[in-house]
Design a binder for these strands. Structure first.
Lengths: 316, 316
DNA sequence: GTGAAAGCGCTAACAC
DNA sequence: GTGTTAGCGCTTTCAC
């Protein structure tokens, strides 16, 4: 009994200890993490609420977040329960706040109303990435995109276009856009924000008119753009520079590999867990400063075409 | 009290019912799924044990399996806990068999010794894909690859090579290989099984000597092979046909899109859950016949080069 | 040091 | 129908 529970300050002969263990095993005895959880109030499991993507099962972002959270949980001796948030229909708060997990990580964009209700329940909860503002462990998306834009400008680009993505109005959507706008404004260049369709159309303009660089919402879009460019006979990066966001597997495997803004998922995962741990100890966690992002240099960016010839009038 | 528990056969005025609900909510009352679990013996959660891939976080296969299981669980009103199986170090059986989940799904290849111990614990467990043989919900990998090989033969190929992958000795490794061997044998062709490195080297042989088609272990390898082929100046499928396995996102996005053997993950996920449900009801589930696979026709396969000219002596 | 008992928050079986 | 109670398997506290 006591040997099984490892009662502190219990000493038995090693022989006895072993015999008890064996007998227990033979009887098929397994300690119930469940009963322990009810008794201690901790089940050592965190729930990760992740929007189900209608597109390819789950996006590669979702998968990477899950992997990062899984790693962080494992280091922390925690288990991870995956709670998909259905695109339509959503989730009842009671479904998630029922103590089958010790805490919740709300990942990025899902209905804010849901997040509000979860926080209102006072259940230990933290937001991951670019989601609901309350108790958010996020990164400096705006700064990252600003740096990317700046980089293109330094290469000599002027007709730089931002290609939006994600959910309009979402934090990620707005901040990445804002980073681009800030970068352009600092350089005194006129900004253009396109949808994917508009970006595609713009590629078909005459060389003097079309954009020489795209700063995109994420790697998925950047990837699509490289494919489209190839189809249209444009070379990347010679004719067109493209920058992504996330630094996921697509950025690495694209042809050419994408210059992109790194999204520090592991750091965010650890940060999120740290917040939950504070909450479990009853302390209100300190506000987390957005994590720094950095630009990963690969082969999808270069000086704009014609830069070697004398600079022409940048009108238009 | 009873309205909160939805006691069967309890009838109160709707008004009262509502008032009670509101009061409860105001007090922040949440039903504890935990206590209920201890009481009923069901926590409505299944654990999915998935090998952590040292390579890209988790392989796309792992992600797709997780997605399929997540969908199946959701339809069944179950929650999914993700239990990563660390590549080195493994997992203690007690860690997983502790009643924080109702049952376990063991996905594909991890140490068989672990699987054996888990089954020995008599905890409700099922194997998914191509893993441990006991209570396995799998598909007909052998038949799928045989069909793929057959297809290439029908196109006129003769120098068809199998490119192995995965863990040598694992079920998946052996069965897919066996499917290839069977296909070749039926046609009276001599089989060659290469590693990825060998396959790569073979591409550099003279046109008359190099393979005209690869049947690969999975889409990841097939994808790599298309990249390698392009680097070497070989055209797919004009110079070289390639067939993958899994039909995952890589098969779709590869250039050209890959002909591949579909891995019916959703069906397997549902099957696995069905098995667990039997187990929960105390019935030993019927042995599941391997699910049928089918060949998805895309653009990475064509007749071998030179087929239009008179057939030359197929020596060598 | 070792045993007994209360209690975590539910469900299910049993009285009223 | 409606209230009461035992008990799920642990941890913790309190007696011995």
């Amino acid at each position: 009994m006591f040997v099984l529970n490892d009662r502190p300050g219990f000493s038995a002969a090693e022989g006895t200890r072993l015999r008890v263990r064996n007998a227990a095993q033979k009887l098929g005895y397994r300690r119930s993490g469940l009963a322990r959880a009810l008794s201690t109030g901790r089940i050592y499991t965190v729930g990760v609420v992740l929007r189900m993507d209608d597109s390819h099962l789950y996006s590669v972002y979702a998968k990477d977040v899950l992997a990062a959270m899984a790693r962080a949980c494992r280091s922390a001796g925690l288990r991870l329960t995956f709670i998909p948030f259905p695109a339509e229909g959503g989730l009842m708060v009671d479904e998630v706040v029922d103590h089958r997990v010790d805490g919740l990580v709300l990942v990025s964009h899902y209905a804010d109303e849901f997040a509000r209700l979860v926080y209102a329940s006072r259940f230990p909860t933290v937001s991951f990435g670019s989601g609901y503002a309350e108790r958010l462990v996020g990164m400096d998306q705006c700064g990252g995109v600003r740096e990317a834009t700046r980089y293109l400008i330094d290469l000599g680009h002027q007709r730089i276009v931002h290609v939006s993505g994600g959910h309009p109005g979402s934090r990620a959507f707005e901040e990445r856009r804002a980073g681009y706008l800030a970068g352009m404004e600092t350089a005194g260049l006129v900004p253009h924000c396109y949808s994917f369709t508009e970006a595609r159309a713009s590629m078909q303009l005459a060389p003097q008119e079309r954009p020489t660089a795209f700063v995109t919402y994420n790697d998925d879009i950047a990837w699509q753009l490289t494919v489209t460019a190839r189809e249209l006979g444009l070379r990347v990066p010679e004719d067109l520079s493209i920058i992504g966001f996330d630094n996921n597997v697509l950025a690495e495997t694209a042809v050419p590999p994408l210059t992109t803004v790194e999204n520090p998922l592991d750091a965010q995962a650890e940060g999120a867990l740290k917040v939950l741990q504070c909450l479990w100890q009853g302390k209100e966690p300190p506000a987390m400063a957005p994590l720094a992002t950095r630009l990963i240099h690969r082969q999808s960016t270069a000086a704009p075409p014609g830069l070697l010839s004398p600079l022409k009038d940048p009108t238009q």
